[in-house]
Design a protein around this nucleic acid. Structure first.
Length: 199
DNA sequence: GTTATGATTTACT
DNA sequence: GTAAATCATAACG
């Protein structure tokens, strides 16, 4: 499978990118361990006009700085003091957009994922949810700002998800964003058991 | 320097 | 169903 070129992440519409990333493969090679997962759930965040985005309305800080850079880099953020959330920065330097990877279907290296999660048997929850999948893939804040090219963390094209199997709905966990919380910027593959449950 | 809070998960009532 | 865990970040003094 070919790696996704950096130019792909630099197009204007993060929502379109979130849709197209469904079915793509996320690959990490960390501490000599290679794991591969198929993306089955994403959310789009937009720097401008989206109150749910950390970098909305031009809010700039050391944490969100990477979103103001060029697309194709990793934005990893520690949430609730426990969970590493993995995002892909999109668009050019003018727009602080990102796509959050919310769920994966394990393909390769499942035994390593289980070990990282402290599980004995394959269970759906290994990669269910943004915090869990990051732990299973070995994603930490060390990846912050990394280019998504073959080496440590990158993406490749996988089986495309036809429109009939793509579900669209409001994002999760962003109630504080008021009206913007209702924007239908969450995409997932229908009937995939690894998609996280809505609250 | 201090303090409030969250792109969540998990366990418990 | 509700709440605790747990710490980097951001806003404030």
């Amino acid at each position: 499978m070919p790696a996704i070129p950096l130019d792909f992440y630099r197009t204007e519409d993060p929502i379109a990118i979130a849709r197209q990333l469904l079915g793509a493969l996320l690959i990490t090679e960390i501490e000599g361990i290679r794991t591969v997962g198929r993306i089955v759930e994403t959310e789009a965040y937009r720097g401008w006009g989206d109150a749910a985005c950390h970098a909305h309305a031009g809010t700039r800080s050391p944490r969100t700085e990477v979103m103001y850079g060029n697309g194709g880099t990793a934005y990893v953020y520690l949430c609730y003091g426990i969970h590493n959330l993995f995002n892909i920065v999109t668009n050019g330097p003018q727009r602080a957009d990102a796509v959050l990877i919310r769920a994966l279907e394990p393909l390769n290296g499942l035994s390593h994922m289980l070990a990282r999660r402290g599980l004995q048997k394959p269970e759906k929850r290994v990669t269910m949810g943004p915090g869990s999948l990051s732990k299973a893939m070995g994603i930490t804040r060390d990846l912050y700002g990394m280019e998504l090219v073959p080496g440590t963390v990158w993406l490749e094209w996988g089986d495309e998800v036809p429109d009939g199997r793509v579900k669209i709905g409001p994002r999760v966990g962003v109630d504080y964003a008021g009206e913007d919380a209702k924007l239908p910027w969450r995409f997932w593959e229908a009937k995939n058991p690894y998609v996280s449950r809505p609250r």
